[in-house]
Amino acid sequence: MDKNAKGIQYMQEGKWEEAAGLFMEAIEENPLDTVAYINFGNVLSAVGETEKALKFYDKAIDLDKGAGAAYYSKGNLFYELERFEEAKAMFEHAMKNGLQSGDNFFMLGMTLLQLDQGKLAIPYFQRSTELLEEDAEARFQYGLVLAREQYIDEAVKQLEKCIAIDPSHADALYNLGVAYGFKENAEKALEMFEQALDVQPDHLLAAHGKKLIQESMG
């Protein structure tokens, strides 16, 4: 196993210092190894050293203008810093440089949501769910944006797929209840609110939705 692969394994185990050490060794052995710079930046980002992380991502991009993973990592960092315009630009650069991953499409969709561009986010969430078929969160966010843009029937389909993947996703159950309420299917809405409360008894929005539906049903 090479040092980058071993370092990633350490990152997955939360062993940040060990990971950083291996990535630094990889850089010293091959100063043109863009992957090592990206990985080291990811460690720095994970431990809150954001400015240092940006320098390593920029170094990777200087070495290889087509390093899609560097743009993606830089986009994630900008997203965490709530610098959404810059995040959007990075995810778009990643895509243009060949990073056609479900995660990149998902994060571009999330960024567009933060920029109040929900309609523009829809195709990116759609593509993310095509590539990440079993990712409950991708389905959830896709369902939410469809609902916000008034595509209620499509939203219901995605939220149902979300809870098929993760039956304990209380927010998806709650939003399904809202969608069924919008469709004037009170019984189904009540069922969804009750399921959300079974999963998360302190889900205040689900409790409120249940109360409203029960009042409307008399």
Rank of each mutant, 00 (worst) to 15 (best):
S128W: 03
E82T: 14
K15Q: 15
P201D: 03
M90F: 06
I165Q: 01
A20C: 07
A5M: 10
V178R: 12
L131S: 07
M1F: 10
F78P: 09
P201K: 03
L63A: 11
F40Y: 15
R139T: 06
K157P: 02
E29A: 14
A186I: 00
F193A: 11
K157N: 08
D62A: 13
I8Y: 14
L63M: 09
L159P: 08
Y10P: 05
G98F: 11
L132Q: 15
E85T: 13
A20E: 14
L99W: 07
G98C: 10
Q214I: 05
K6A: 12
T111S: 12
Q200A: 11
K74E: 05
N76H: 13
A67T: 08
L190W: 02
D198H: 09
Q12R: 15
Y174W: 05
L115I: 13
P31D: 05
L120H: 10
E82I: 08
E184A: 12
T129Q: 01
G102P: 02
K59V: 07
E187T: 14
N76T: 12
L197K: 04
A46C: 04
L190F: 00
M192T: 04
G75C: 08
A138S: 11
E134A: 15
A94P: 13
Q158L: 01
L173M: 01
Q117T: 04
Q114V: 05
D116H: 11
M95H: 14
D166L: 04
A189I: 06
F23T: 01
H208T: 08
I8H: 12
V47W: 07
K55E: 14
I27G: 01
E18H: 00
A94L: 12
T34Q: 11
I213C: 01
L120I: 09
A46P: 00
I8D: 12
P167N: 13
P201W: 05
L159K: 10
E80C: 06
D58N: 13
I165F: 01
D103L: 15
E160V: 06
A53G: 00
M24R: 15
E187P: 03
F40L: 15
K55C: 03
K59H: 13
L115N: 14
I152F: 03
D2W: 01
K3E: 14
L190A: 05
Q158W: 01
F40K: 13
G109P: 09
A69G: 10
A138Q: 03
G218M: 02
N185L: 10
G75D: 08
T50E: 12
V145G: 09
L146D: 02
A186T: 00
F182E: 13
H203C: 02
K65T: 14
T129G: 03
